[in-house]
Write a protein that binds this DNA or RNA. Structure first.
Lengths: 200, 200
DNA sequence: GACGAATACGAGCGATCACTCGTAATCTCC
DNA sequence: GGAGATTACGAGTGATCGCTCGTATTCGTC
């Protein structure tokens, strides 16, 4: 498998494919998004699509990787990691949740990759990064704030917190205006309540 | 549409179909469960299957209705509704959550109907009962405990609580032994923390 | 401008899906 | 025991899916 020499045109086409895939995932979800529909939305033929990706799963995988990077960028610019331990819990949660919400609102369809247990099992490698990148980050923060907490407990707490966020992200993205703001507030309250009792 | 006269044999076959459907939903989810596979698992031909159900959606709908009834039965026997307002919050949550967990452990695949936003939109009528039967119940309990809470707020709080439960039900069902117990404890802590701050 | 590599096309292949239909066995009720 | 309804079958239909392949065009490089 020699790494293919790629022209600038090709890079652009790949980006087009990922854009189209994200849009379709947002509209109909992973399973019901056909590869022919992706090609059509990206303005190319099925044959051209398969010049860049070996199969549908690889498309989701590449999209997932791109989203992971965008998410990481959004988070690292959102807070300088040094002061994490000193921050009040509510403040910390806002600084993590707000960019995450903004990210999901900006990229609806990300949750098709993010929260989806119905993903093909083989896609674990492609879908898991998004899920576990976030969980790992949260676990690290929890460990930094509560060093005495056993590692398995910190990981379980992080996983639960991420599941709660993922569960409410759908309604939050679907809602608008005041209702969305109210749901975000509820999410933060839920996290504060849960993590406060976990830190004690 | 005159209600079809059904023989005892037919009733048994319908139950067989729903059993098979629930098992397959647990294994591969709604989308990837084929009607031919349902028929085969139920020990009948596709033609016989379609004697009892007009389409795949109707099968899911009937299964959902059966689960709603079983769930209602499990809950009403689990607590006499009179003392709901007086109970300590943690106790109340245990009495609601424990039967729900037991139900989902006994019927894996119920969550394919329960928590699934990827369900066909038209299935709202079939899948919503399970979701909204639980949410409505929770909203009623919240209103009973906090009568001064505006109704929209109570409904939103109930919805969030149910989403949290649904989000953790998957990991809980998937886990075993101590890990499952630990996750159930986390779920209850999360609910206590959230609902305490909501009741205030 | 010529040559190889990369890009591009789209009809169509094989598989699978939800669902049908002609036919036959079995049950209910008189 | 016979008529009509119900139950049962399973090969088959049309649609859709992920994906291929033969061929044509464009690009980078000399």
């Amino acid at each position: 498998m020699p790494p293919v020499r790629r022209q600038a045109r090709g890079e652009r086409r790949i980006a087009d494919v990922l854009d189209a895939t994200l849009a379709l995932f947002a509209e109909v979800g992973y399973e019901k998004t056909s590869t022919n529909a992706i090609a059509a939305r990206a303005g190319m033929s099925p044959g051209s699509l398969y010049q860049y990706f070996p199969n549908k799963e690889a498309i989701a995988e590449a999209l997932s990787q791109r989203l992971v990077e965008e998410l990481r960028a959004a988070h690292t610019t959102a807070f300088g990691e040094a002061d994490v331990t000193g921050l009040p819990l509510a403040e910390l949660i806002s600084r993590v949740v707000d960019p995450l919400v903004a990210f999901n609102v900006a990229h609806p369809g990300a949750k098709a990759l993010f929260g989806n247990a119905a993903m093909p099992a083989a896609l674990a490698a492609g879908s898991r990064p998004l899920q576990s990148a976030v969980t790992g980050r949260v676990a690290a923060i929890i460990r930094a704030r509560s060093p005495e907490l056993p590692l398995p407990d910190a990981e379980r707490t992080a996983m639960v917190a991420v599941q709660i966020v993922a569960a409410l992200m759908g309604p939050i993205v679907a809602a608008e205006g005041d209702e969305r703001a109210a749901l975000i507030a509820e999410l933060k309250r839920a996290l504060v309540g849960y993590l406060e009792s976990a830190e004690r």
